[in-house]
Design a protein around this nucleic acid. Sequence first.
DNA 1: ATTTGAAACGAACGTTCGTTTATTTGTGAA
DNA 2: TTCACAAATAAACGAACGTTCGTTTCAAAT
Lengths: 202, 202
Amino acid sequence: MAISTRSNGIRSRQAILDRALEVAGSAGLHAATIGVLSDALGMSKSGVFAHFGSKDALDLAAIDAAAERFARGVMAPAATAPPGIARVVALCEGFLAFVVPAAGAPAHLAPGHPAFALSSSPAARARLDAWLGAWRDALLASVAEAIAHGEMAAASDPAQAEFELRAVLDAAARGMRDEPPAAIVARARRAIDRTLVSWSAA
Amino acid sequence: MAISTRSNGIRSRQAILDRALEVAGSAGLHAATIGVLSDALGMSKSGVFAHFGSKDALDLAAIDAAAERFARGVMAPAATAPPGIARVVALCEGFLAFVVPAAGAPAHLAPGHPAFALSSSPAARARLDAWLGAWRDALLASVAEAIAHGEMAAASDPAQAEFELRAVLDAAARGMRDEPPAAIVARARRAIDRTLVSWSAA
DNA sequence: ATTTGAAACGAACGTTCGTTTATTTGTGAA
DNA sequence: TTCACAAATAAACGAACGTTCGTTTCAAAT
């Protein structure tokens, strides 16, 4: 009871989404045109189009693919870390490793990336908001747990801590043009350490 | 020796740029189409087009207009503040006031705004980089002065401080969707205070 | 060997983009 | 009054967009 008849259709779909995210990462999702993707993949426009049925569906699929990679690469591993500061650090380190990958790797997209920031349909915005919300909630919950476990000062505002951590992480994700990746990670790590120390002391 | 012959041409140009920045602020610069602008202004496409000669020139003019407003609204006022921590604070407060304006005001665009983040010509990117560089340099120089004046610990890395301050400011400029503006400003101010205090102590 | 159906194709569609050209409008200067 | 010239217009252009349609390809199922 095989499902596909000719070759592997799902593999093409993945290849299309890979390219779409690659293009989006450097030029925005709206630049990941069906024509651009079909040319880059050596396919016809209609061949690419048929996989999704509409440009908006393709955008949605691309966003879902990015969110799933982020979930697998950052959220899930951090969820295995013990609750408390360890999990906060796991989330931050996972984010940094995800956003600034090893040499030559194709630079993953994090929630809130400029690629998705504008020029999206209402449906796409809804997905992006959900994605960003899940990330924010995970980070916020980890901070709240750290407070509950007595590893951070009870007086500190979890939302404030989440705001500051995410500010640094987003700056790291965004600042990769100016400085070499290693320097950015070092700066972000230093800022995060200082933030956590400053709050565990209070 | 009046320059213009029929009505006021420069006023139209300003109106076009105003609209372009307004549209760009919520939908990106690439969405500030000549057709969109001409419709919004009750002009013809060619009428709008004639003022700039090309879409890219229009984009450049819009970026220059945004940069000039930022220079007038943030950089210049802060430059009158006494060097040292006072100027650092003036830059940060000026940025916050500029980015999250008084009620009903049209939300100015700061360097690094997502509206410009992607989908720009090489020339536009060069202008954006120059604009962002000037802002970064001003902030960095103010921190360096604060150190030189003994108001911040000499051991602290000015570039690190600038990174952290700008991370918070950018987060404030970007986070206006989630929370009311006043709350965002309060968070940013708190984060900045904590950063400065933490470094004046070390 | 034949049938089937997912996968891809090629060509065209209507629309919108930026752009060009030729023309009209209107005010300050001669 | 006439002239000159900036400002705005209408109409059209090629290119690229997303999309539709009919057809072709080819591995698996019968």
